[in-house]
């Protein structure tokens, strides 16, 4: 994994850009030394970061504006929770989570990708809320508003954190490699000029659908991690607000960058924790951040940083 990182550092831009990325990794690992709440937050950031990276891939490279990612996050979480409750081993539960999320993606994707642009936004939003209301209403299964608690399972926070960061870095590395393959480049081409790539013979529907499945699976995995991390799942996690939060993280990071999404997740998680220590108004915070980012830092903060400090072009 470390070797892979170095390879990326060489391939991805100037040495100073690589330094920034190492810095990010460092920030993720630093809390290990601190333990307690900072460690808790850092794990949270790493897990949400995985979901943010997935959305960044979907939005920035696939051109799909999805406002329904929370559904996959929640599904992953509930699947693990319910699987453990049913007595299934942890490994199987963690395998099931991304699969269930991918299944939902398949079913909804068949409809979503018959439309484009603003309609995708609306449809994914609607589907996301459908899953939310199902989780909310189906109290027999999910415990409704009371949520589902994963008592009886305790994983050492350090172990969980290392695994979370490891999975995150592996995902970033893997996805970056994916983007260099013909599949990845074809996805880019679809985003840049769908008409043209279709006229060249590529059935774009299946490419977009497969990307949607992949990102859903990754998000579901992140959700399962969150369930283990928090030992508790609530339907509120599936609310539209969470999808918007992921959007904010991606935007902060610059919608094109996978590393940027990691940065966005880290920045957001810690700032949110700080802000909520003195106020209850989480929505105000997310909302303002969203508005300010769109209006003033349209490319995202991470590319800005990369340019100022790294001197590079600032891409994934």
């Amino acid at each position: 994994m470390m070797a892979g990182l170095s390879r990326e550092v060489r391939a991805g831009g100037t040495a100073r850009q690589g330094l920034l990325r190492w810095g990010l990794v460092g920030l993720l690992l630093l809390p290990l030394a601190l333990g307690g709440y900072p460690l808790y937050l850092a794990t949270e950031a790493a897990l949400l970061g995985l979901a943010a990276v997935a959305l960044s891939l979907l939005l920035g490279h696939g051109g799909v504006p999805s406002l329904g990612q929370a559904a996959f996050l929640g599904l992953g979480a509930y699947t693990v929770g319910l699987a453990l409750k049913a007595g299934l081993p942890l490994g199987l539960a963690l395998l099931l989570a991304p699969l269930v999320a991918a299944l939902l993606a398949l079913l909804t994707g068949l409809l979503v990708f018959r439309t484009h642009g603003i309609f995708i936004l609306m449809l994914t939003l609607a589907f996301g809320q459908m899953v939310y209301s199902a989780a909310h209403k189906w109290t027999g299964l999910t415990g409704g508003d009371d949520g589902l608690s994963l008592s009886g399972l305790s994983i050492h926070p350090v172990l969980l954190h290392l695994v979370a960061v490891g999975v995150l870095l592996a995902a970033v590395g893997g996805l970056r490699a994916l983007l260099q393959t013909p599949y990845g480049k074809t996805l880019e081409a679809i985003r840049q000029n769908e008409e043209k790539i279709r006229s060249l013979g590529v059935p774009t529907f299946y490419y977009k659908l497969s990307l949607y499945l992949l990102t859903a699976a990754l998000t579901g995995l992140a959700g399962s991690g969150l369930a283990l991390h928090r030992s508790f799942i609530s339907p509120h996690d599936l609310f539209w607000l969470t999808s918007a939060t992921l959007m904010v993280m991606v935007l902060l990071g610059g919608s094109r960058g996978l590393w940027g999404a990691v940065f966005g997740a880290l920045l957001y998680t810690f700032v949110q924790a700080w802000v909520s220590s003195f106020t209850d108004l989480w929505g105000l915070f997310v909302g303002s951040l969203l508005v300010l980012t769109v209006l003033f830092a349209r490319e995202g903060l991470w590319p800005l940083l990369e340019r100022r400090l790294g001197g590079g072009r600032g891409n994934a």
Binding site: A177, Q180, P182, K185, L200, V202
Partner: peptide
Amino acid sequence: ENVALAQKAAQGQSATLGQPL
């Protein structure tokens, strides 16, 4: 890359995952 993608599309290999373009 533009041309290579066109080539891959004609060969039906646009979904190749194994190695970079």
